[in-house]
């Protein structure tokens, strides 16, 4: 397989130079590495700049509502556990509007890979502060700077029970591809929080900002099996910003807990002749 097999040949809708292109490239590279066919993949998107990938990535797609990619992906995974399911989301989308889905789906450990385009700004609505914007960040809706502290997706995911928690930087393509491939391969709920510079609106969290600060956890032989250490690392944000896998564990997935899914997926079960006569006996 080659990268074009996942290419719909449509016109990209991102600003020239947007880091979303890097994510689009690496998602396709990862899929080829994992030998997944387009029809075996379901990608569910929220609404935001990230969602334009729906019109470019060749596979089964569902461009859902702002914040709702996870429950749609989760329902689809339960209906057909044989599908490879990824959810693609943005920071406003997943950490704001859809925050409860982020936490609650992480708890389930459903086998879904979540890739968040985290540019720390609302791009599609022209640059307002987002839930991950730094304290003090000035925008049209925060003329005196953001008053509240940003959400910490890594710490939230770990505490919510996600079994694969990682961060990548869109400026480091080989590492980004590796994280996305690992997340898809992981059996359970996997987060890749992608630091994605918005070249149009975010003048703070730029490529240069990250190039100066980002380092790879794997270069420091970080132990990915220690939840408390992972939590500590999740709060490192300053002169040094860690990328890589913070935490990984093996745990039964949500869909594996249903005996009724052992033999057949829901989609494969027959519906033409369900016998409900014994149900009526309860009501005599």
């Amino acid at each position: 397989m080659k990268i074009e097999d996942f290419d719909l040949g449509t016109q990209a809708r991102w600003c020239p130079g947007c880091a979303d292109f890097n994510i689009w490239v690496t998602v396709r590279q990862a899929l080829i590495e994992l030998n997944i066919q387009p029809h075996e993949l379901l990608a569910v998107y929220g609404i935001g700049c990230h969602g334009h990938m729906a019109n470019m990535l060749k596979c089964y797609g569902f461009e859902s509502l702002h914040g709702r990619s996870l429950p749609v992906a989760f329902g689809a995974k339960l209906a057909n556990r044989n599908l490879n399911v990824i959810a693609v989301a943005g920071d406003g989308d997943c950490y704001g509007e859809g925050m409860s889905h982020f936490i609650n789906t992480a708890r389930t450990n459903a086998d879904i890979a979540l890739i968040v385009h985290n540019n720390m700004v609302y791009g599609l609505t022209t640059g307002q502060a987002s839930p991950t914007s730094a304290k003090g960040y000035k925008s049209k809706v925060t003329p005196d700077g953001v008053f509240d502290v940003p959400v910490n997706p890594i710490a939230l995911a770990i505490s919510a029970g996600a079994t694969f928690v990682s961060r990548a930087f869109a400026g480091n393509i080989p590492h980004l591809k590796q994280m996305i491939a690992e997340a898809i391969k992981h059996r359970g709920f996997a987060l890749v929080d992608v630091l994605q510079p918005c070249i149009t609106y975010n003048k703070i969290n730029t490529y240069e900002f990250y190039y100066k600060r980002v380092y790879r956890l794997q270069d420091e032989n970080f132990d990915t099996g220690d939840k408390m250490k992972a939590m500590e690392k999740a709060f490192e944000w300053g002169d040094r910003i860690p990328i890589g896998i913070f935490y990984r564990e093996e745990r039964e997935t949500y869909e594996e807990s249903f005996p009724q899914l052992k033999e057949k997926s829901l989609f494969e079960q027959g519906i033409s002749n369900v016998n409900v006569d014994r149900l009526m006996e309860e009501f005599v």
Partner: peptide
């Protein structure tokens, strides 16, 4: 949203 996702993937929901 889960019911819609499940239905999209082929299960009556």
């Amino acid at each position: 949203n889960m019911a819609i996702g499940a239905s999209y993937a082929g299960a009556r929901s």
